[in-house]
Amino acid sequence: MTPDVSMMRARARDLWAGLGWMTFGAAIAAHATSMPIPRHLGATTITGPGLLPFMLGTGLALLGAILVLRSVRGQAVPGPDDEADPATVSNRRSFAALVLMFGYAAAFALRQPFVLCTVIFIWAFVILFNWREAWGAARLRLVAGALVLALAVGFSVEFVFENLFYVRLP
């Protein structure tokens, strides 16, 4: 990726992110001023609970403003991701992983049976990301291998946490 393109990407990101931080920071600062000061317990304006959130919100808004100003004046600091070659990365892969992981987390948090969920999750994850590279008999090996890994992890995690650490898993 050429420096110009990565610079443009960084500038565009900074502009929007900066505007976002400004709004967010201002909202926090505004909310902080509405926090009560427990004067009957000896608190004053500068020892009340709202002091630090107010300062942090203001700081965030200021940093956001710097990002915006810098971007408008044509400056930015491109980071590793701005310089990465788009051919080597794919956000769709991350999204697919996120969907699977979110589903698994939700099942766990909603107290579904732990081992079953874990086995399904690992099995599906491995197959999803290796399916396209495997053909014929390799696919069969993939399905079996993934199942072995999933069962091994599912039962050993359950065993270690429930029987060695006495953590109650769902």
Partner: peptide, 10 residues
């Protein structure tokens, strides 16, 4: 990675 994901949640 799926194994790491499991450990990250458990």
């Amino acid at each position: 990675m799926p194994v790491i994901a499991v450990l990250c949640l458990v």
